[in-house]
Amino acid sequence: MLTASEGCTPAWRDAMKRACGRFGERPSRVDPFQSVFAMPVDRSAWMIVQVDSLGCDDQGRPGALAFHALFVSPWSYRRAGACPLAFAPAFRNDWTAADQNTPLPRGRVKPVNLGKEPSGEVDARIAPIVDALSRRRRVVVQSERPVDTLMTSAWRRLSGGTKRRTRAASWAFGNANEFDFVALPRLGGLTLDGSELVLTAESATSRI
């Protein structure tokens, strides 16, 4: 862990380390990407994390990932629409060894307004996703890249209560973090009990 803001508690740091360690093993031949996941730390905070593929680390080793976590109160998360992608303006990806032990400032962010769904073609997977999450069913999407657009469209249709309880990842390499909504590059090795809604990378569309 390179650095943190003043006030970032040891418990929050430990929670971040555990969550990042459970993100999963990176498969071979993965294109550069950015993804986001969110989960509650405890009653005091939600953790929203951007995962960024750096290419190589400071020692030239390939496959390096950088994790930048924001810790916000449940009230702040609720006010932001309880959507992990709404916090995109606060993330950075220009991490270097020079950041080591240089405290980060505490800050404010204006969350992205998801707005209304554009008219036209709609991914047919959205309705089943909304129905499943509303019924507390886990949703697993197989995809070769982060599913930001699909996730945003689904979140527009979820009730506030459902969004506030849903642990979500727009892309991960495994589901040891027990996300309620997660996109994965492959499903092999994932333990499923048959209650999940499992969707393929191919999207069907319908017109609204």
Rank of each mutant, 00 (worst) to 15 (best):
A69I: 03
G189V: 02
A86N: 06
S203Y: 04
H68Q: 11
R167M: 12
S76R: 11
R156K: 11
A38P: 03
V41A: 09
S76M: 08
T200A: 14
P128V: 05
T102Y: 00
V109T: 14
D131R: 15
E144D: 15
A86P: 00
P111M: 04
C56I: 12
P128D: 07
G107D: 10
A4R: 14
R79P: 06
P118V: 12
W46I: 07
V112I: 14
V36D: 02
W155H: 03
T102M: 10
A64G: 05
R145E: 13
L70A: 12
G63H: 02
P84C: 15
A176M: 09
A45H: 04
T166Q: 01
V140R: 03
E25T: 08
L70K: 06
P84D: 11
R138N: 06
R108F: 01
N175F: 01
V109I: 13
G189L: 00
R137T: 11
R157Y: 04
S159M: 10
G188V: 09
K110R: 15
A45T: 06
R137K: 14
P103E: 04
R157V: 03
A127E: 15
S35P: 04
R136W: 09
L133C: 06
A98D: 15
M39I: 11
E196D: 07
P40M: 07
I48S: 02
N177K: 10
M16G: 10
I208L: 11
V140H: 06
R43C: 05
T9E: 14
L190Q: 14
G24S: 10
A90N: 05
C83M: 09
V130H: 09
S119N: 08
E202M: 11
A132N: 04
Q142A: 03
R18E: 15
R145L: 11
T102V: 15
T200C: 09
N101I: 00
G161E: 14
E144L: 12
R108V: 01
R156A: 06
M16D: 10
T205R: 06
P10D: 03
F179D: 02
R207L: 13
F23A: 05
A90T: 06
S76Q: 14
N93M: 08
F67V: 05
